[in-house]
Amino acid sequence: MEKAVTELKPPLEVQIRELRVKLEGREILKGVSLSAKPGAVTAVMGPSGSGKSTLLKTINRLIEYYPGVEVEGDVVVGGVSAFEMDPYLLRRYVAMVFQTPNPFPHLTIYDNVALGPRIHGLAKSKKELDEIVRWALEKAMLWDEVKDRLNDYPSKLSGGQQQRLSLARALALRPPVLLLDEPTANIDPVNTKKIEEAIIGLAREEGTTVLIVTHTPQQAARISDYIAVLYEGRLVEWGPTKEVVLRPRHEITRAYLKGEI
């Protein structure tokens, strides 16, 4: 499985090819093909149970920790199959933010952000690490709020701040690919806005390939360049956001955009 791939050269395009995923015999994804371009935000939408999270977790191979999983097809990241890479290496390039804010409660704000770079040995000195932490927190629009209390524990932050900290922790790896699984589902509007700004900034300024699962069409319209709609494990619509929103081709997309599903 593990080939001698030890490095990927960003920007990285993510290509999903005929992806089929079964969990304990149940087919969650039934042959999905899709690609996400660097510097663009691709929103993955669909009713719950349509396989959005599974799609995301297959890209960074987290799905392999679920019981009874079978994967067919391929995920290609920057020209290399994800399944031929060591997963630890893959995840250094493909970072993820989850639905629930999950900064590690026993690590300080600083240590949470520094965790990834430390593990992967990305900083050669304390100063360099400080810079990475600052950069990540700035990109996550959290720096100004926490710069004077980097040694506090995350429990002192609000839920929205904790989610931005989770984002910063992911960004500290300077990932060319960022996966977000409904990152604002449990977050208030003010924090949602900041996270959305952060996401757009990453795509525009850093050329990051962003895949975001969202359940609100409004959010998709606000931040995404492309929209992909999943329904019962199949890709039913995929195109530039404006086209999809203005001229949905598929009945299900139309119903979904109207909020009927």
Binding site: N60, Y88, R91, M96, N102, F104
Partner: peptide, 23 residues
């Protein structure tokens, strides 16, 4: 979700069990 967060950072089993034990 904490285990997934640790794994998503590219931690090896050794690294994330140590982290979770710390928790």
């Amino acid at each position: 979700t904490y285990r997934e967060a640790a794994l998503s950072l590219g931690m090896t089993r050794y690294e994330y069990t140590r982290l979770l034990m710390g928790m």
